[in-house]
Amino acid sequence: MATVRVQTPAFDTGAELAALLAGRTDVGGIGCFVGVVRGTAGGQPILSMTLEHYPGMTERALTAIAAEAEARWELQGCTVIHRHGRLLPGEPIVLVLTASAHRQAALDATAFLIDWLKTRAPFWKHEEMAEGGPRWVEAHSGDDAAAARWDTMKL
């Protein structure tokens, strides 16, 4: 059963990693992805990024995505934590951890989770620019392509 949380405060990656390993010796590796607020958008500096989400659906969507990863790969554990609210450049946004007996499952499941999360979890980014007005971040077609590659990938 995956750990899924949607929260405002920062997460402690080390503590989450330790929690996945606590009391077990069957884990051979942990895959980790930390998404961070980039300080520029389209070459222009940003002051902040605010993440809006759909309470209720967000947790359902993340839980469903984590369950899909657990169905596709043999995982000993899986953690997905996504922040919302106003974040500053350099702050972490999202944490994906997957524990498996062997590295390939953990690395692939981590990539799968972040790819699907970007196209299937109801979050919206709003950027406050250093110059010019605030703007909503537009979805990237590259994210759809990254997510779609898992549709056809043979396991």
């Binding site: 993440l51 970007k118 299937r120 979890a121 109801p122 979050f123 980014k125 537009e138 979805a139 994210d143």
Partner: peptide
């Protein structure tokens, strides 16, 4: 029912 733009999380 909810309406929103394409999602941009992660």
């Amino acid at each position: 029912v909810a309406f929103f733009p394409p999602v941009t999380g992660g």
